[in-house]
Design a protein around this nucleic acid. Structure first.
Length: 89
DNA sequence: GCAGTGACTTACA
DNA sequence: TTGTAAGCCACTG
């Protein structure tokens, strides 16, 4: 039920709704999920998420760093973002 | 119910 | 500017 939706589900829903060419920080995702300070929890959710429908590569650190990626690491993540035109290098 | 873990964030030296 | 330390939150065993 939607009433029993967990923080995990919210995080996945938020990330899944990130439009192509847009990046959000872990803090931004956490805020949209309901907890602005749960940036670490966001990482936990994406870490266990292997759904290709979730563009977890569009979630980066508040510092602008890419962070990690469960499908190839920062390098792979940067390639995906570059392919979308989010970053130029 | 408690403790541990982690793809993070912020502050200070 | 860079590195270290502590804090915060949600989920699992």
């Amino acid at each position: 039920m939607f009433t029993s939706i967990t923080f995990k589900e919210k995080v996945l829903a938020v990330v899944a709704r990130i439009p192509r060419g847009t990046m959000l920080t872990y803090k931004q995702v956490a805020t949209k999920a309901g907890s602005q300070n749960a940036s670490r929890a966001v990482g936990n959710v994406l870490k266990e998420n292997f759904n290709l429908k979730i563009p977890c590569h569009r979630v980066i650190h508040s510092d602008g760093r890419l962070g990690r990626y469960n499908r190839g690491g920062e390098k792979r993540k940067r390639e995906l973002l570059k392919a979308e035109g989010v970053i130029s290098n």
